[in-house]
Design a protein around this nucleic acid. Structure first.
Lengths: 219, 219, 219, 219
DNA sequence: AATGAATGAGGTTTCATTCAT
DNA sequence: CATGAATGAAACCTCATTCAT
């Protein structure tokens, strides 16, 4: 990272981004434990104090990284939805899985963010974050409603919840890895993507079918 | 807590349970931070060392608490499924919501367990835990298949993921509370239970409809 | 170990000895760390409290074990000195090395005793121990003076110090083992027994030569 | 201790030395037990975390202190050997006793280091320490061989062992002090320095005499 | 703007010993 | 005599954050 002083706004933005890049890198390498500010500073080639010039604290730094992830995903969706003439559920799932695979730090960090961090963020920062996300989400919903008239923000939220929850249950823990070695067929060690595919299909299918009467299915 | 020495197995079991009770209580009171063994010992009226007679370490203590929750829920389901002549999705959702409301520590602790703790548990303990849970899960699935022939363990897992993920997104954070004060209609602050109801309905409906051809619904 | 109650003196003595046997065994197996009373009790098949019926405390237990070692060595010397018609330095060294090899727990425990433990023993117990040892030492000296007229208790002490000190410097520490792997010729990793042989030879030779004038040797 | 920030290398070195000074002081005052990092920090007037900026851990801190002692002794010897035109055994003993008297923490700490600590030091740190000491020892041996042609590194080691072992046997324990009160003439309570003098004389005398035939001396 | 030395609260775990049973 | 459940004082180390330079 450049050791040059960031005087103007553009330099500052680039330095901020560079710090986030480093943090993302470290997060990936060190999933087992938690990344320390010390490590970020060292890896980014800046002093610890400098981090605090660009981010109010640790929570905010990683929240910013998470926000970058979410924004990137939203951008992709809007872009894709605007380019194709029609979309179905499979296309959405394809987009989601593509993003997850391109952004391996996303799920672990999102899990951490929603599981732990969000409670410790200063309210002001949390509110601002939430507002930015909500605004983007509304755009995304609007863009998607062209293809999915019945789609709602609530369904997006539910899908995200499914995404997140499934990953927490199926993520490759040491225990999970061990289990899979012993018995590849245990239900709890099914591949995440396969399970996610099935679940999202079911959720969207069910969500869009709610309008029509659903007489005693499954019972 | 009783200060009597637990000589026989029954007393020991009761003392263990009493410690778990205390831990659960503290967990509820102290969601913002993490409960320390110190606090558990003090609140339970035992010495710190005593905790380590009943649990190998902190992680295991809270994992045991989580296991107690899950077992309790499973018991309820099996019991209920065995008593009624027929069940539908609404019954299941009713069971779930009932359990969550009766056990306010469940979701925060489950979130913590899957988000953080599971990675730090000794592999042996984790494997044993997983095995016990899986065994119970199979029983539950068997009991439910009487009423839902198409139900699978995978669907149970997906439902749990939804439960967990939604709660993490909608839990009453300071930020969330503030938001709701400002604007009761923001999508992100919808009530957890309402959202869970909708989502589970959709998921199960979709899951059970998968068998039948589902031609491009929603698109 | 017998779980029978020790009523008479003989049973008590045997139980005490059995505990010491177990402690010795454990000490050997666990040189890297320190043996806990818990471990001794478990290995001996008695309850922790029982240990305190036979020994006032941990220090005293291991001091008793050390005393058993020393007494055994003294016995051997007296026995040997009384049986042979003449002895020289080599015979003594042979006796010493034989004992050390037969009693692998001796040096680690002696080192621990003199390095750490002795300071923490209640004065009364320490005095009694010291007195018993001194009495035995005097006997040994008397028995040896038949063969080594110039031998003194001081020389015995010095020899013991050499024995002990050399072992502490040359004991197989992880570091020492690593060093020896890298370079078998470093002076600091010479074999203990070889070094001890040389040193004792020199010490006794020098001690017995002190009577005669030793003008400027070595300079 | 100065509360000034140590910015440059020189300040840092001085602060490190100051911490070692404090640790040495505490060691002397608290021989009965073991000095805690807490106590060192408090006595040094720095925060606990600061200690860990200067030393990786407790073991390393006290090993560094021991190394300072040894280096100081070696320096004295080399300096002395280079200044005088001739040395004999008495001069060496004088040097040794002088150092011990000037450095009262040396023997207790050395005893602790070799008795206990060395096993718990990370191998890397131990190896580095050993290498530095060995290098210095070789210099010392070279400097001394001017005056003692027959002197070897092995003899130095043996002398150190004697020094160490004798001190452990004769150190002023509560028990030893009590004994001396009762009976000033017991062999076990002879003065350390007197015993050391005799022993080193004998060892060196014997070592240098080994070349010449030693026909059954003492028997 | 940038540095990095200093802080210090906080948490888990061990284990010799006691004493009610 | 024997048990083993309970105790509770230590002790080490981490790391987010601050602030003098």
């Amino acid at each position: 990272m450049s050791r040059i002083r960031a005087i103007n706004e553009k330099d500052k933005y680039q330095k901020r981004e560079a710090i986030l890049d480093t943090a993302e890198q470290l997060w990936l390498e060190n999933q087992h434990s938690v990344v320390s500010m010390d490590a970020v500073a060292r890896a980014a080639g800046v002093a610890k104090g400098t981090l605090y010039l660009y981010f109010p604290g640790k929570e905010e730094l990683f929240l910013a990284l998470h926000e970058r992830h979410v924004s990137e995903f939203f951008s992709r969706v809007v872009y894709y939805a605007g380019r194709v003439s029609s979309m179905d559920t499979d296309d959405m799932i394809y987009l989601v899985q593509g993003f997850i695979k391109d952004t391996p730090a996303f799920l672990p960090l999102a899990s951490h963010t929603h599981g732990i961090m969000e409670r410790q963020i200063p309210v002001e920062a949390g509110l601002a974050f939430q507002e930015r996300i909500d605004r983007q989400l509304l755009e995304v919903v609007r863009a998607l409603q062209v293809h999915f008239p019945l789609l709602t923000a609530a369904l997006m939220l539910q899908s995200y919840a499914l995404l997140l929850g499934l990953w927490q249950l199926l993520r490759p823990t040491p225990v999970k890895i061990k289990l899979r070695e012993q018995d590849g067929k245990m239900v709890c060690t099914e591949d995440y993507f396969e399970m996610l595919d099935t679940a999202l299909q079911a959720l969207w299918c069910g969500a869009f079918a709610q309008e029509a009467p659903s007489p005693g299915i499954g019972s």
